[in-house]
Amino acid sequence: MRFRIFTEPQQGASYDDQLAIAQATEKLGFDAFFRSDHYLAMGGAGYPGPTDAWTTLAGLARETESIRLGTLVSSVTYRPPGILAIQVAQVDQMSGGRVELGLGTGWFAEEHAAYGIPFPAKRFGMLEEQLEIVTGLWETPLGERYSFAGEHYSLTDSPALPKPVQERIPVIVGGLGATRTPAMAARFATEFNLPFPDFADVSDKFAGVRAACETLGRDPQDLVYSAAFVAATGANDAEVARRAAAIGREPAELRAHGLAGTAAEVVDRLGALQADGVDCVYLQMLDLHDLEHLDFFAREVVPQLR
């Protein structure tokens, strides 16, 4: 099982805050540093204000050496697919081939209103076309041109540059839907992610994606199966309660829906998730200044599951 650190900088974090946690992520042996792609805090002021996900990852690409870097997830409403393909490929070059792209429909209407970003009511079609365009641009052979004509986007004779370092940048598609999301993951993704699922639903959700792969004639084992959960762990109940309080949550609620509790409790929970097919876990660390939390997880939990 692989472990990735997943942050929500729109809640209040500077670039330097993110650099500190990304470098701790690398030093402690986690697989990757991921961040959300949002421009507005969800409750609270969000000081010092938002930071752009791909601008941030470009900086981190030059200030880290080994960890994977990506978004969970970028919204199709923020960037035209041609521009997104350029940005991600460039950051892949800057990182020496360590980038991954999580892409979704977007959902937070208020941030679109706050920054004048159009927010169409129907976005699944946009997601499907963006996935096809972005991967198509990257995969177009050097020297050839790429064109696309769809309902939402049209590209004509694109040089499809720049090219990423990786032969194929991993693409993450996620969600809890029963039909369209599994079908898109089966068609375009290298990884399928469940964002904060009920534990009892994990196995069935993955089964739906495997079925979608089989329908397309794709080997379901080609996909990585991952899930994201809020983390609040500690050496004892008092530490768990302190970390839960720091992010405005209750320990009992986090134990029921996230990765919360002592190391032994969390190892048991992760073992059950592994049995349900989870290959990779995104640990949502909401207190970006609590680097001791990462250290505790790396020392007390990770070695028991690798």
Rank of each mutant, 00 (worst) to 15 (best):
F297L: 03
S95Q: 03
G136W: 08
E191V: 05
D37I: 08
Y115I: 03
A149T: 11
S95M: 02
A298W: 13
E65V: 06
R218M: 00
T71M: 14
A211S: 15
E111L: 02
P182V: 03
F33L: 11
L40F: 05
E144H: 13
R218E: 04
P303R: 14
L69M: 07
D31T: 09
L176P: 03
R210P: 01
L60M: 10
M126E: 12
G82T: 12
F124W: 06
K205H: 09
Q23D: 04
G97R: 07
K122S: 09
T56P: 05
W107F: 14
G44Q: 01
D268V: 05
R299I: 12
L254S: 01
R306Y: 02
A121H: 15
Q284R: 11
R269Y: 02
V88E: 07
S203K: 13
A298T: 06
Q221G: 11
Q90A: 12
L254W: 07
A228K: 00
K27F: 01
P197K: 05
L142N: 14
P197R: 12
L57Q: 11
A264Q: 15
Y282A: 09
D219N: 10
Q11A: 01
D92I: 15
Q93N: 12
D31L: 02
A89I: 13
R180N: 14
R68E: 14
G97L: 04
Q10S: 15
E167A: 05
R4E: 09
E8R: 12
A207S: 06
R242D: 13
F30Y: 14
I133A: 08
F188R: 05
E26D: 02
Q90C: 09
M126C: 06
E110P: 09
A212R: 00
V240W: 02
R145W: 13
D204F: 09
H152F: 13
K163C: 10
K205N: 10
H289V: 03
V301I: 15
D204H: 01
D222L: 03
R255H: 09
A85Y: 04
R4M: 07
V267L: 07
E167I: 03
A109F: 12
L131R: 06
H38E: 10
L283H: 04
L72R: 05
A58E: 11
A207D: 03
G102H: 13
E300S: 00
V302S: 01
A178R: 11
E8Y: 11
S75K: 08
A238Q: 07
T25R: 05
Y146G: 03
V230D: 02
M184W: 02
A238I: 08
L305D: 00
C280R: 14
F296M: 06
R243F: 06
V230C: 00
E239I: 01
G106W: 14
R255M: 08
L259V: 09
D276R: 04
M126Q: 15
A272E: 15
A58I: 07
V73A: 00
L19F: 11
G136T: 12
A245G: 03
E132I: 02
E63P: 06
M94F: 14
A178S: 00
G104I: 08
N236H: 02
P81G: 01
A264N: 12
E167D: 04
F34D: 04
E26V: 12
